[in-house]
């Protein structure tokens, strides 16, 4: 088990960086209209994740494909195979 640490509990973590790919060029940080990020040592830090409106411009701007944006769990919508609905109905 790792050591306990104190942190502010985030409601969601919209923006994740791939430390291997990120060159810390800062383009994502500069394009974000809300200024969600602050400069960091290895890559920008999503300092205000709750303010993100999930537009995806940081991902669109990244030349390395180093950012993942994901909707909060509650907003991840569901899809199914159409065939499964028809099959269920037959049964």
């Amino acid at each position: 088990m790792s050591e306990f640490l104190f942190r502010q509990t985030p409601p969601a973590e919209p923006i994740q960086f791939d430390g291997e790919k990120c060159t810390n060029c800062g383009r994502c940080l500069e394009v974000c209209m809300i200024d969600v990020m602050l400069p960091g040592e290895k890559h920008p830090i999503a300092a205000y994740p709750d303010e993100c409106w999930y537009c995806g411009c940081c991902v669109m701007e990244c030349p390395e494909g180093a950012i993942r944006l994901r909707h909060p769990l509650m907003n991840q919508t569901r899809w199914v195979e159409k065939a499964s609905l028809l099959k269920k109905e037959k049964e």
Partner: peptide, 14 residues
């Protein structure tokens, strides 16, 4: 929403 202020409207937070 203080948890998700960025999501509480149609348009961007700012």
């Amino acid at each position: 929403s203080s948890g998700h202020p960025g999501l509480c409207e149609f348009r961007p937070l700012q």
